[in-house]
């Protein structure tokens, strides 16, 4: 009897893992627009990117400003592969990363290892 229960619980856990990590979609934060017309978002880097999903309008320049608040070397570089831009993030400093998504789509930014991930969703 307990074998059945344990296995059912296990299957439930697996379903939860699949749903939580792969299937569910976060809502994201909309980028603010500066007086110069740049869509700007501040991202805190600590155990990941906060916020990790930025919503922007396609066709207008975007500036992501990263502020790394940890010493873990995993996050010292952020790469936005789709636009070939990257930035070294010194601890505590604000570092801008600029690009213009001309087409709607989802563009991922990540640490070089791809362990910390975030994305810009251009609509």
């Amino acid at each position: 009897m307990d074998v059945v229960l344990v296995n059912l619980a296990g299957l439930g856990l697996i379903t939860l893992i699949v749903w939580y990590f792969w299937l569910s979609k976060p809502v994201g934060t909309a980028a603010a627009v500066t007086s110069a017309g740049v869509q700007e978002a501040f991202i805190v880097v600590r155990d990941g990117y906060r916020p990790d999903t930025i919503r922007v309008t396609a066709g207008r320049p975007v500036r992501l400003v990263f502020n790394r608040q940890e010493s873990d070397p995993c996050s010292e570089l952020v790469v936005l592969d789709a636009f070939g831009v990257s930035a070294v993030l010194p601890q505590g400093g604000n570092v801008p990363l600029e690009f213009t998504p001309t087409e709607a789509g989802s563009y991922e930014f990540a640490c070089p290892m791809g362990m910390l991930r975030g994305k810009v969703v251009a609509e």
Binding site: F21, S24, P26, D47, G48, Y49, D52, M115, L116
Partner: peptide, 13 residues
């Protein structure tokens, strides 16, 4: 802290 941070971003490391 690392696991919790990642979990909140729906990622795991």
């Amino acid at each position: 802290t690392g696991a919790w941070g990642a979990l909140r971003h729906r990622s795991a490391n």
